[in-house]
Design a protein around this nucleic acid. Sequence first.
DNA 1: ACCTGAACACCGTTCAAGT
DNA 2: ACCTGAACACCGTTCAAGT
Lengths: 204, 204
Amino acid sequence: MPRPRTPLLSTERIAEAAMELVDEGEPFGVNAIARRLGVTPSSLYNHVAGRDEIVELMRGRLGEQYLPPAIEGTWDVVVEEMLRAERRMYAEHPFLIPLIVGKTITDPTVIASYDLLATALSGAGFPDDDVLEIVAILDAFSIGFGLDLASPDEIWRPETPTTTLGRLVESSPRGAPRSDRAFEAGLEMLLDGLRLRLARTELD
Amino acid sequence: MPRPRTPLLSTERIAEAAMELVDEGEPFGVNAIARRLGVTPSSLYNHVAGRDEIVELMRGRLGEQYLPPAIEGTWDVVVEEMLRAERRMYAEHPFLIPLIVGKTITDPTVIASYDLLATALSGAGFPDDDVLEIVAILDAFSIGFGLDLASPDEIWRPETPTTTLGRLVESSPRGAPRSDRAFEAGLEMLLDGLRLRLARTELD
DNA sequence: ACCTGAACACCGTTCAAGT
DNA sequence: ACCTGAACACCGTTCAAGT
């Protein structure tokens, strides 16, 4: 069945199938996507350059869904809203995180949201030299807590005796609730820290 | 050359070859390790259970090299020393990070260092329910900034016009120096935030 | 323009065979 | 006990052939 009159594939259909795979926690790959679409792996190469481009397609797709194109309010509201949006995104699609980690970001929607953040920080009075550094901090924060969500329920498996860790691992909440509490506490620290930093900057 | 009188392999030699591969940024895998050791891939399975166990071997190896078995000082000194140790570890072996991310930690040395941290926090007066949450924050911080080191030099590649990001990406420092500055700033925020949190706890 | 099928160079893992 | 070599079920990617 070569060259159907109406195309079987498109970047959208490929991205959609890829996201389904990722959300179900299935192993992600070109072959698996092709299987899900009832098509041969080589067919995909008529629409995308390869595996990496499919990952970037997913990043963009989620960016459109979750990241606000504009935010009203002071710089700290922008930071908070953006981090909460990323948090929701990662919480609802945790398995995407290991795939996008360490890949150059090119998707326009996602670039635009980093730009929004950088513009807000710059406008608030953070020196140019500090802005990208702060964006890096925010990113580390976001990715770090995102990975916390993607982690196995059992992060530590002590096989030797411990004085504190073992006891806590037994008794403490696991999974999403613990991670959410940690995120909230971390977010508060981060915002306080940034406000303090801006106040110090303004003293100069 | 089957069954040499003195074994060609051992977990140590395997871990060593694996680390060499990772540090050189070469693709990591069972086959590549075997090639480097001048041996058949299947030989490795006489010493390790598979790829995942080799990754955990590397984690343990680095833990022994970098993580202090004990730290003198107050809880915040413990936190700072531990994070700096992890930072050095990740900075000198950035390509390991994507491999260990999201894998259950079993290595005794690494478990012991998390235990050290948990014991210090618990002894300082942080409530039991908060300790693992804080450890999760520290971990997110550490991994987040570690990944920042493992990232490509070019994190963002704007292909559409931006108001602020593009300009900053052109002019700002890249790579390790930017990441180091961000780490230091983040560490300070984190420690201030935790001290504040403890002070609040002690008011109750 | 868009899909198939064969082919290529890889993976990680298992297992019988050899000493 | 420890290594080899063949085998298996996968990968991602390329490319000629077909309409």
